[in-house]
Computed example of a mutant assay.
Amino acid sequence: MAIVDITVIPVGTGTPSVSEHVAEIHKVLREYDGKVKYQLTPMSTLIEGDLTLLLEIVQELHEVPFKKGLQRVCTNIRIDDRRDKDNTMDRKLQSVQEKL
């Protein structure tokens, strides 16, 4: 299982706010309920699941602002793909909490 940290940055919106675009991205993610786990954070969105599916979702999310008429989008992704044991968002947080 992999974790993707994704930030979709719409360019040329005419306003510094991007919450409307983030909301549209999360509407798309709702279509994957039960297939992936996702979490909105103040700076990005985390998605957990099979890497092949996650990469398909990344492409779909990147397209969201284009479908709203924007002409430029920058998307940043980080992938955490650990294969020696379960790699989940909850496990990673629990590991840190145990050490505090």
Rank of each mutant, 00 (worst) to 15 (best):
V4T: 10
I6C: 04
I6A: 07
T7W: 00
T7V: 07
T7E: 03
T7Y: 02
V8E: 03
V8Y: 03
I9G: 07
V11H: 01
T13K: 07
T13C: 03
T15N: 13
T15V: 11
P16E: 13
S17W: 11
S17P: 11
V18P: 02
E20N: 13
V22N: 09
V22G: 02
H26T: 12
V28W: 02
L29G: 06
R30V: 01
R30G: 01
E31Q: 13
Y32Q: 13
D33H: 01
D33T: 04
K35A: 10
K37V: 15
K37H: 06
Q39S: 07
P42T: 12
P42Y: 05
P42S: 11
M43S: 07
S44P: 08
S44W: 02
S44K: 09
T45R: 00
L46G: 02
L46A: 02
I47S: 08
I47C: 09
I47R: 09
E48C: 00
E48M: 01
G49L: 05
G49T: 10
G49Q: 09
G49C: 12
L51D: 04
T52K: 15
T52R: 15
L54D: 02
L54Y: 00
L54R: 03
L55T: 06
E56C: 03
E56H: 04
E56P: 05
E56M: 04
E56D: 13
I57E: 11
V58T: 12
V58A: 13
V58F: 11
Q59S: 10
E60I: 12
E60C: 08
H62A: 13
H62W: 07
H62M: 15
E63P: 05
E63Y: 04
E63M: 15
